[in-house]
Design a protein around this nucleic acid. Structure first.
Lengths: 247, 247
DNA sequence: CGGGGCTTTGAAGCCGCTCAAGATCCGTGG
DNA sequence: CCACGGATCTTGAGCGGCTTCAAAGCCCCG
């Protein structure tokens, strides 16, 4: 069952890591997985809602999200929150940490998550010694920049309905790449408040917006599972410009 | 005189390049400037408003902006425009080009502009062969990501007045690092429509917003020159969270 | 002395916000 | 198994920030 509350899988041996091909170090030959394993310091299980990294700190640890969902965000002085991105299994938490500069955002577990921890300096050194990994890092960086540009465009120039639909399409596309979409439905643990804080809206208006999409027969959402009733039409209406990975 | 209409300086010898210490290849010893010079293919003068790079193409040339202003943007199918960032002298146009992937944005000259052109593959090779440059590239990338995050937060969670004030503070801070601020005033060639398209507003409302700031005695804007009458207060009111480089 | 681009100002309207009350869901403990 | 309580979602009513449409003023260049 696609339950939000299920426990995340604990990380196992790197050699058999199912998310490996989606991580930064994907290009490393399978035979060299031992080198990654040697770098790994430990693995962690963290409950939902726990803060993983705090804005302002200089983390000595870099995490790879093994299972579960997390998100990056900033808090304004008056309490308003902006979610900058959602993090899915296989993703690094996070690149900027490799700079040894103070973090400009915090990271919080959305569901319960499991993490692999690497020493920042060890990983940085390993990346520098492997040109192919460095390119992988630059690529990863560029992909993140593209996704930030897409979000800026959504916030600056699109309506609430467009934003919500496009966020859902983006997540579906990323989950599909992870092979976590079954038919037309997939795990979707975001609360409406998360959607609102990511898209510059209020939770109340997200509720109305989702009702609208539901009434149009485009999708339904409940029990932490999202179901697309008409993915084709959703794509035509909202995916035209540049959804990350159209299929 | 700080005129928008002045001709941009044409690039001279790399060894004497005044923007060198602000570019990607800043860490390269001055004595090795010849290696950069050898990579440079040509230099260009481009008039205001000309498109420099087009969304969708895979540019074989990477440009460094030597003098003048430019901006990155995307166009939606219905004609709406979102400006993603403004480019100032010394900056690369642009990183993602090094990936040899189709560009997700276009670049346009805001003022007349002079550029140094490098062959994409040559530059990519040079960067890969110099670990210190690779780190520089990653850093540059991370800085761009941070700035995109800041823009997302502004668009998602701040009022029109906050957005406009913070854009001005950001540009002032970047120009200051380039030593292009004289006292409280600096060159500011953006039309109100550029501000609007960068901040998710309309030009009309930017006009009202600027009037408000002017009436508060905070700044004045005309002839392509912006003057801060009370930088201190402007910083206190709008710079609290994370303006790129507070001074 | 025109004329085109840009800015300013006004009036009206709409999208999304705020405040508030109910309904529903879900984990917890009896 | 049921009852409770907190979190989440839904719905309504009224408001406000920003937009749209429009007209007039300004500025600079030719």
């Amino acid at each position: 069952m696609l339950s939000t509350a299920r426990q995340p899988r604990p990380p196992g041996a790197c050699a058999a890591c199912p998310v490996r091909r989606h991580t930064l170090y994907a290009p490393i030959a399978e035979s060299r997985a031992a080198e990654i394993a040697a770098l790994r310091r430990e693995s962690l299980m963290i409950p939902a809602r726990r803060i993983i990294l705090r804005q302002g700190e200089v983390p000595s640890t870099v995490f790879v999200l093994y299972d579960g969902w997390a998100f990056r965000f900033t808090l304004l002085s008056d309490g308003r929150r902006q979610i900058l991105s959602f993090l899915l299994p296989g993703e690094l938490i996070s690149l900027p940490a490799l700079r040894l500069a103070p973090l400009r955002f915090s990271v919080q577990a959305l569901t319960a998550v499991s993490l692999c921890a690497f020493n920042t300096k060890d990983l940085a050194g390993f990346v520098q010694d492997n040109p192919v990994l460095t390119m992988s890092l630059v690529n990863e960086c560029a992909r993140e920049a593209e996704s930030a540009d897409r979000r800026v465009t959504d916030l600056g120039r699109r309506s609430a309905t467009e934003r919500v639909a496009r966020l859902i399409l983006e997540i579906e596309s990323r989950l599909r790449a992870l092979d976590r979409v079954e038919g037309d439905s997939f795990e979707f643990p975001l609360r409406q408040e998360h959607i609102a804080d990511a898209l510059g809206l209020t939770a109340v208006h997200v509720s109305r917006t989702l009702s609208g999409l539901r009434d149009e027969g485009l999708l339904s959402l409940g029990q932490g599972v999202l179901m697309m009733h008409n993915r084709q039409r959703l794509l035509e209406m909202f995916g035209n410009d540049d959804t990350s990975a159209p299929s």
